[in-house]
Amino acid sequence: MTKRKKKRRTGRQQPSPHIVKANRLFVGSTTPRPKVPQWRFILASFGMSALCIGMTLTLWIPGRSKLNDLRDHGVTATATVIGVDSKPKYVKVRFANGTLTGREVELGEYAGMLPDMHVGESLFVTYDPNDPSRSLAHRWVVDPPVNLPAWGTSALAVFFLTGAVAVILRRRLLLTHSPPPEPA
C-alpha cells in the first residue's frame, strides 16, 4: 500500500464548500478585461497605410501624366517594329510617316508593361513632338491597360487603414465599457 501524504497545516482555516462554490460562480461571471491593442500596432497600421498610399501615387501619377500629355499634345504616326526583347524589356520602332520618318525610338512603358509585338509588325504610335522618346502605342493612349500595381497597393492601403480604424474602435470600446484591470 502506498502511504498517504499528510496535508500541511497552513495556519489558515479552509473555507467551507458552499463558500468555495459561491466564489467559483462569482469569478466565472466576471471575465477579466481582454488585452487592449497597443498604440504601436495602431501607428504601424497607419504607417503601412501611408506607405501604400505613397506607392500608389508613385505608380499612378507618372503613367497618367504621360497619357494626358500624349492625349493633349501627342502626334500619331505609323511605325514598324524593328526590335523586341524576349522578356520584353523594350520594343524598338521605326517611324514610317510623319515628321520623324526613319527615326528609331523605344516605346515607353505604361504600368511596367509593353505591348506584345513581333518584329515586322506595324502599329500606330502616339509620341510627344518635343520629346519623341515619350511614345506609346496609340491603342494604349486611347484605352490604357489596367494599372495592376497601383490598384494592388491602393487595395493594401484601404486594408491597413480599415484595420487601424477597427483597432482604434475596439481599443476605445474596451477602455470605456470593461471593468478596470485587477491590481497585481
Rank of each mutant, 00 (worst) to 15 (best):
K92F: 05
T126N: 02
S122Y: 00
E104Q: 15
N97H: 08
R134H: 11
L114T: 03
M113Y: 10
D143V: 15
G108M: 03
S135T: 12
V142K: 15
T99D: 14
G108S: 14
K92T: 14
S86R: 10
L136K: 09
A96F: 02
V142F: 13
P88S: 03
W140G: 12
T101I: 12
L123P: 03
E106T: 12
S86D: 09
G120F: 07
L114M: 10
N130G: 10
K89T: 10
G98W: 01
P88Y: 00
H138L: 06
M117G: 03
S122K: 15
V142P: 05
S135Q: 08
V125W: 00
P115N: 07
E104M: 13
L136C: 05
P145A: 09
L100A: 11
P144S: 11
P115M: 05
D128G: 02
N130D: 14
D143E: 15
Y127I: 00
A111I: 10
V91Q: 02
S86W: 06
M113N: 12
V91T: 02
Y90E: 08
T126C: 00
P115Y: 03
A137M: 12
L123I: 10
V91A: 02
M117L: 12
G108T: 07
H138M: 01
V91S: 02
Y127P: 00
N97D: 15
W140Q: 13
G112N: 07
G120S: 06
E104G: 07
N130M: 10
L100H: 08
G112R: 06
R94L: 05
E121N: 02
R103C: 09
E109R: 14
R103E: 13
V141H: 01
A96Y: 01
A137H: 10
K92E: 12
E109A: 15
P115E: 04
L114R: 12
F124H: 12
R139Y: 10
K87H: 09
Y90I: 07
L107M: 05
P132E: 04
P88H: 01
E106D: 14
D131A: 08
D131I: 08
A96D: 10
V125K: 02
G98T: 07
S133V: 11
D128M: 02
D143S: 15
N97F: 08
S135C: 14
T99H: 13
R139P: 00
S135M: 04
P129Y: 05
R134S: 08
T99F: 07
E104N: 14
R94N: 05
E121Q: 08
G102C: 06
T101R: 06
F95P: 04
S135V: 03
L107T: 06
G98F: 01
G102S: 03
R139S: 12
D143A: 15
L123K: 09
N130F: 08
V119C: 09
P129W: 05
G112Q: 09
L107D: 00
K87D: 05
D131C: 04
E104Y: 02
V119G: 07
S133R: 14
R103Y: 06
Y110K: 13
G108C: 09
Y90V: 05
H138P: 03
Y127V: 00
T126A: 02
L100K: 14
S122G: 04
